[in-house]
Design a protein around this nucleic acid. Structure first.
Lengths: 261, 261
DNA sequence: GAGCGTACGGTACTGAGTACCGCTCTCGAT
DNA sequence: ATCGAGAGCGGTACTCAGTACCGTACGCTC
């Protein structure tokens, strides 16, 4: 118990974690990740090696945010989707924004982490594999939306992966300094709009199934607000609706689509 | 297996590697991954511990295929795309098939690996991060297709991720025994068709840009031959019909389209 | 003050991964 | 046949991450 002011308790644990993290980042940037030992980090933070492993489970954990907790918050938001299919795009967008906002709040810490992960292969791998938890949560939430079964949920997996990819794309641009905070928020909306638009009608796998007739929300961050007018397209074809729908939807991107028979 | 080592020397090296791999898999299935030490594997294979680390760089490497070599083959196929945008879907499908065929050829070995990765978190992470190389290769190849720049290639990233996701979805179904070899090949065609169809028209980033009017190839591995019927699609949108019509027709290429008001 | 939970430090151990040295067998040249 | 030369292999010794266990100091409650 060295040098801790006698009055304050409770915040001690947090302080220890913070000191360890700061010491770790400083040493990593200075000597490199591999060349820095846990002993050095602990010594620099003024604690024992045991304490390091008690606070962070491993040398890698001191770098990364608590993805499990973050993914749990994402899942919680996704759970509020209920059975209303029209709420899915908005809900997914908000869920993704939870993650983005977390990084924005971290600020320079997130940037320092990016510098590390960009240069150390081990850490990059760790970061990549950390996306699996998010993909899984989005996939599970999206299954109700695609009407697929757990073993056979290609669409849900693809869309979930696309959401995560779109988020990470924007996040990386922010990490590199290509956009500022608000720019990142706007780009996330735009990117997810692009990704989710191509799914809106893909929806249910059953050929004649219902597609959300109208999501009712005007412009959830989508680009152009449509202004009425309707068009009827008659497809005469041997191709089933299911087959042409993805292409059709993609072609119409940001246009609301309703399918009748 | 994808050991590109020119066999100038005897078959000794390959034999040692094979013995080590078989010993490792046997011990892993019997005692579990964590409980098996490299010493045990080496002893079981009748070689020294040093030899193990000379042949496989790490304990994990003995399990996984040479993803780098495999991804290089994928990249080689992708390089033959040239500038013809119509060739992209076919080329991407064939590139993905290279990977699938590799696993199919592995047979039981791939299944044994799947059993391991499904139960050991460390190995699952490794497997997840190994997909990054494939995604990167597809993304780079697709950039010519989407007309995007390296720092700002959202579409290419999303499509690349979707291709890998679709492939892994089918692969996992095969690994679980849900489909046989030919079934997996067919499902890969179908899954990639679904994924790539939604991109065909998304193509170039410019909104009103030209999309390949017709790729001319009938059924590049697309699923079933359709059987007649017509479909009515109602578009409710602020976008004028003239705006969407070119894309729409391109998307439907092989489908007769009639537009009514 | 006695008991109790918590946070911490220290010691000792396992096992992966690395560096280095030395052995042996084979091949080709002289 | 002899002599390197090089490849493949084994052994030793070391570093360091991660785990298990024990002991201790502090604050809190009864």
């Amino acid at each position: 118990m060295p040098t801790t002011a006698a009055g304050s308790t409770g915040t001690t644990a947090t302080d220890t974690a913070t000191r360890l993290r700061e010491a770790a980042y400083a040493l990593f940037e200075q000597q490199g990740y591999a060349a820095t030992t846990v002993d050095q980090i602990a010594a620099e933070a003024g604690v024992g090696r045991t304490t390091f492993f008690r606070v962070f489970g491993s040398k890698e954990d001191v770098i990364f945010p608590d993805h499990e907790a973050l993914a749990a918050r994402v899942a919680a938001r996704l759970d509020t989707l209920g059975d209303d299919p029209g709420a899915a795009p908005l809900g997914a967008t908000e869920a993704a924004r939870i993650v983005l906002e977390h990084y924005l709040a971290e600020g320079d810490l997130a940037r320092a982490r990016y510098r590390l992960t960009a240069s150390v292969p081990t850490l990059r791998d760790r970061e990549v594999s950390s996306t699996a938890g998010y993909r899984r949560r989005f996939r599970d939430a999206l299954r109700g939306w695609t009407g697929e079964e757990p073993g056979d949920d290609l669409r849900a997996e693809v869309v979930a992966g696309s959401i995560v990819t779109a988020h990470n794309h924007v996040l990386r641009r922010w990490l590199r300094g290509a956009v500022d905070d608000d720019g990142a928020r706007r780009e996330l909306d735009r990117a997810l709009g692009l990704v989710l638009a191509s799914v809106a009608a893909t929806g249910r796998s059953g050929g004649a199934d219902q597609v959300p007739p109208d999501d009712g929300r005007p412009g959830d961050g989508r680009p152009g607000t449509p202004a009425g007018g309707s068009t009827v397209v008659v497809l005469r074809s041997g191709a089933s609706l299911e087959e042409v729908l993805p292409e059709l939807q993609a072609a119409l991107a940001r246009v609301e689509v309703r399918v009748e028979a």
